[in-house]
């Protein structure tokens, strides 16, 4: 059989440039984070890219600790981190802390948010929160096969334009869409595509004023701090973790020009 177009789960996805490096995360060029709601296929994508066998299963809450692996694509080496699935980034639960900290302080070159096409609304909620704390993200709309079975039609192009980030459709279990995902990740990592993430304004009485008053103080304490809006909102919410980061100087790692020390930096 010489059909090269058919999607195939096991044959390295007919992507000749992909080299699955398993656990070998030495001297990588970029760090990629995998975030998303529980059960959206993050680990399946992870396994597809690295050749590893992270546990997958139809049951929210399986991946607790982060798992790491590596792959090479078009000559660049990537370390990829499979974060625990979360519904949000705002709560003080251990898994949300892990996910939030890694996206914020781990400084991934790209954050892939894996979403379930059949429940996109719920998944976009997390995506919007992620876009609040990172500038470089790719949305992977997974479960396209299921969406088709449900009679859903998705306009991913339109979504991508409005979100301001690349959006890739996929059916990770069948290996569909993985080549496109890799391409989008490489584009963002190497700067060929620039993200302009959608950040909706919040209409909460007094918030704009409070943020406007906090920002200059933040900038004075931590010149050039990135995602200052998020930091301000967390402080106004009374989040102890953020207050501690401000107090002990940890927040200093959040500078826009601060280069995350590669690989060994955030263990």
């Amino acid at each position: 059989m010489a059909r090269t177009t058919s999607p195939c789960a096991t044959c390295a996805l007919s992507t000749p440039q992909l080299d699955r490096l398993g656990l070998d995360a030495q001297e990588v060029d970029y760090v990629v984070a995998l975030a998303g709601n529980p059960n959206t296929g993050k680990s399946t994508v992870f396994n597809n890219l690295t050749g590893l066998r992270q546990h997958t299963g139809n049951w929210p809450g399986k991946t607790i600790a982060r798992a790491e692996g590596a792959f090479a694509y078009r000559g660049a080496r990537y370390r990829i981190v499979d974060l625990p699935g979360t519904y949000s980034l705002l709560s003080a639960t251990p898994d949300e802390e892990v996910a939030r900290d890694f996206i914020l302080f781990g400084k991934p070159a790209v954050t892939i948010v894996v979403a379930d096409a059949t429940r996109l609304e719920r998944n976009l909620n997390l995506l919007l929160q992620v876009l609040h704390i990172t500038d470089r993200a790719v949305l992977c709309v997974n479960f396209l096969d299921e969406a088709e079975a449900h009679g859903l039609v998705l306009d991913l192009g339109g979504l991508s334009t409005e979100l301001g980030i690349p959006v890739v459709g996929a059916a990770a279990r069948q290996g569909r869409g993985i080549p496109e995902l890799l391409e989008a990740v490489a584009d963002v990592a190497e700067g060929r595509v620039e993200c302009r993430p959608l950040r909706p304004r919040f209409e909460i009485p007094g918030l704009d004023h409070a943020i406007a008053e906090l920002l200059p103080l933040l900038d004075h304490a931590y010149p050039g701090v990135s995602h200052a809006d998020w930091v301000a909102m967390r402080l106004l919410e009374g989040d102890e973790e953020m207050a501690t980061a401000v107090r002990d100087g940890h927040l200093g790692e959040l500078r826009a020009d601060h280069v995350a020390t590669e690989a060994g930096g955030h263990e």
């Binding site: 996109l120 998944n123 859903l152 998705l154 919040f202 007094g206």
Partner: peptide, 29 residues
């Protein structure tokens, strides 16, 4: 000076935005 249910409103508005996006770009055929 902020409403006591600040966090609720934060989540609520994020969900409202995702609802808007989903209904604009997903169609049940």
């Amino acid at each position: 000076d902020l409403p006591q249910n600040f966090r609720d409103r934060w989540v609520e508005q994020t969900y409202a935005e995702s609802e808007r996006l989903a209904s604009a770009y997903v169609r049940q055929d």
